[in-house]
Design a protein around this nucleic acid. Structure first.
Lengths: 262, 262
DNA sequence: CTACGGGGTG
DNA sequence: CACCCCGTAG
């Protein structure tokens, strides 16, 4: 069986909200190391993956490896029935065809239990090599959301140029063009404030063009983390990573478009 | 004639908003004891009734019994023209075919008067015996609203099980099932906060299945009262009562469905 | 025109 | 976490 107790329902709620527009269903893989999934979007362009380590739960018990097929629309509906501060207990009994979610209100006067039907999803698990990237940008996730939203009004794709000086986001459309340059700023997190600067770590400058439609889906994960890591190498899929506290992460991979260099 | 002065227009506004989706028109019965109405919904399934006692008005005068046919859509439009803090005066002149509503702003600088045409509605008045119920639940009205809204996403009907321990609301649908258990909690209204606990008073456990569509109409009355009383006996219509301060109430009756026990 | 759901603010 | 307002859908 699986039994995992997560003290903060809001974490699970945000994770599901951030992927449900991208992926309709996925297998949740549960093992003694934690819970994860990965899935391509409907058009097979973007890959979403997430991991919550076992030590993010208290307690966590998973007797054997499980692959639980979940429809995100159903899961999202059910999670809307949980308060942000509820404790959530995820439970699966061996060979059952349902997954149970139990929500306990902070004062314990309210206990809700929801059972969600499991699906049989044939998952071609795509293993992603743990590659090194030529360039790693770390920046404020809300700043990133803002830029993607703003540039979406200019054009359909964004060019990201990263150099030692900083990172530049540019878009071009019928009515004009625009760009935002973030200079590298040494001070990440001044005095415990939520202020996050921009850092660029690189062995090679990169320049990549990406679809803003997808990026604007990825930014739904911004509420999970103050910062986002953007890991790039020329010509291969970009990895966006939002850390979930120190207990896990959610990652998106998106292949760059062929750039129309003017 | 009838002349009734209600110091708070908001009360009348909320009452009308809470029934107008259920009932299109009704006879308002006025006597020296107060103003009331009762009406079945269009499909003759749910009964709505309300009462404002004469002492909730100041002053109140009603020379003889009246039955004034009102279309809720018209009344609702007119009441939208009143400020929440306006004083409202309800006035009917004998043998007139209109009812007058006068709104006075708190500072008395603005006086509005609206006349609404009366209808001739043949009302088969259904007298409801003042019965004893096997089980009386009292709980937070906003909690009740929340549960009905949440479970609506799971299924079309809810099963209410009340026992000495508390009350459980359950729903089942295509994607799974869910339930919310409220434990009986001693502390009602800690320290004047709007916190309302759950109490169950019973001579017999009950288990009833009800349409969530109707319940979600009833919960429109939640703004009138912090708490709702749910009075049940197995097999007969359930009564939901929202008190209007200490001057009246609004009640809904809904017959249980035949339960499909698995 | 009305009702319901989602997002933002206090 | 609760309440209010706005936008979208029926």
């Amino acid at each position: 069986m699986l039994e995992a107790r997560l003290p903060q329902a809001s974490i699970l709620k945000k994770i599901v909200e951030s992927v449900k527009d991208l992926v309709s269903q996925a297998n949740f893989d549960c093992s003694d190391s934690g819970i994860s999934f990965q899935a391509m979007d409907e058009s097979n362009i973007a890959l979403s993956s997430f991991l919550l380590r076992a030590d993010g739960f208290d307690p966590y018990r998973c007797d054997r490896n499980l692959s639980l097929g979940i429809k995100f629309a159903s899961l999202s509906k059910i999670l809307k029935c949980a308060g942000n501060d509820d404790v959530v207990i995820i439970r699966y009994m061996d060979d059952a065809d349902i997954l149970s979610l139990v929500f306990e209100s902070p004062n314990n006067e309210r206990i809700s239990e929801f059972d969600i039907k499991l699906l049989d999803i044939d998952s071609e698990y795509l293993s992603i090599p743990d590659q090194e990237f030529e360039c790693k940008v770390k920046m404020s996730s809300s700043e990133f959301s803002r830029i993607c939203r703003d540039l979406m009004t200019i054009g359909a794709s964004v060019v990201i140029d990263a150099t030692k000086e900083g990172v530049k986001f540019s878009a071009t459309g019928d009515d004009g063009s625009g760009s935002v340059l973030l200079k590298q700023s040494g001070s990440i997190d001044n005095e415990g404030r939520g202020v996050v600067g921009t850092s660029v770590e690189m062995v090679e400058p990169v320049s990549l063009e990406l679809s803003l439609k997808y990026l604007n889906n990825f930014t739904k994960a911004a509420p999970l983390s103050d910062s986002v890591a953007i890991n790039m190498s020329n010509g291969i899929p970009v990895m966006f990573q939002f850390d979930v506290g120190d207990i896990g992460y959610i990652r998106y991979f998106l292949a760059p478009q062929i750039k129309d260099d003017d």
